[in-house]
């Protein structure tokens, strides 16, 4: 099996923490940036991005690729992302296995795809086109979902695995999203982990969510809960060491709070396996 690159333990970079990061140089191995936040001509976002990049490895995480949409790929967007790749020189680039709109509209959400061969074929060719354009493999992330389509022909993990194999792309495994979807659709998250090809998983997301009783919404506005930490431990047992980060998008606390969660991930990894040292 090919050795996957390993960055260690990171955090989603958010504007609230820019100055603290530059002043305090927190003990993080890497940051993930939200691609769209930096597709701007200038100003503070790019100023801080460049300075933080001087001290930390970065990976890029997009929300607008809309890889599953029936609209044509947005070439202007791809060019802008490619330009940002040249500026940032990220360790890798990811986006979501979803669609965000059609007819040139953007719903600004990670909308669910039907798990059908028609969708697999459509998405595989688009990922290949994106990878050819960027000249590198991309990672696709499993999203949380709240509904199931009647025309589903396979399980979500089969859908993800099939696409990753046929498109020859990598996987960003969001452990919280697996937990959320397993709750919403009543499946065993271990089945999900068992269905994912080990050699494709390159990054893990951990996040919090909002439990509405009969269903969970993936809000990224709270700390990671214990069942998700437990699932993370299972994930590492199954896949081995994988670069892991905490993803908080809303209700953002002080950096020190998030560092505690990063540390918790580090400790779990230490307990579950021998964590390699980041060079």
């Amino acid at each position: 099996m090919k050795q996957r690159p390993y960055l260690g333990f990171g955090l989603g970079l958010r504007p609230d923490h820019y100055e603290t990061i530059l002043e305090e140089h927190p003990p993080l191995d890497w940051f993930e940036i939200l691609t769209e936040n930096y597709l701007v001509p200038g100003g503070k976002p790019l100023y801080f991005l460049d300075r933080i990049r001087e001290n930390y490895p970065l990976v890029m995480h997009g929300v607008s690729l809309s890889i599953g949409s029936c609209d044509p790929l947005d070439k202007a967007y791809l060019q802008d992302v490619k330009n940002l790749i040249s500026r940032v020189e990220p360790a890798w680039v990811s986006d979501h296995l979803c669609w965000t709109g059609i007819h040139d509209l953007n719903m600004h959400d990670l909308l669910p795809l039907p798990y059908t061969m028609e969708a697999v074929n459509h998405i595989v060719s688009r990922i290949q086109e994106v990878q050819d354009y960027f000249g590198r493999q991309i990672l696709i992330e499993n999203v949380s979902s709240y509904l199931t389509y009647l025309n589903a022909e396979m399980e979500e993990w089969e859908f993800l695995a099939e696409i990753a194999k046929r498109a020859d792309c990598l996987i960003l495994l969001d452990v919280n999203n697996i937990y959320v979807s397993s709750y919403n659709h009543m499946f065993d998250p271990r089945d999900y982990l068992n269905g994912i090809p080990k050699d494709r998983v390159q990054q893990i997301h951990l996040a919090g969510h909002s439990n509405q009783g009969h269903y969970i919404i993936d809000t990224h506005d709270a700390p990671v809960i214990q069942p998700v930490w437990d699932l993370y431990a299972l994930t590492l047992e199954h896949f081995g060491p994988i670069s892991t980060m905490i993803e908080r998008d809303d209700n953002i606390p002080a950096l020190s709070e998030l560092l505690k969660e990063v540390e918790q991930a580090r400790q779990i990894a230490k307990e579950v396996l021998e964590v390699p040292t980041v060079a």
Binding site: C70, I102, H103, M107, L111, P114, E118, A119, Y149, N151
Partner: peptide, 13 residues
């Protein structure tokens, strides 16, 4: 892709 397109169209609507 017709089925996928219809589904996305209906969802967005």
């Amino acid at each position: 892709m017709r089925e996928l397109q219809k589904l996305q169209n209906d969802f967005q609507n």
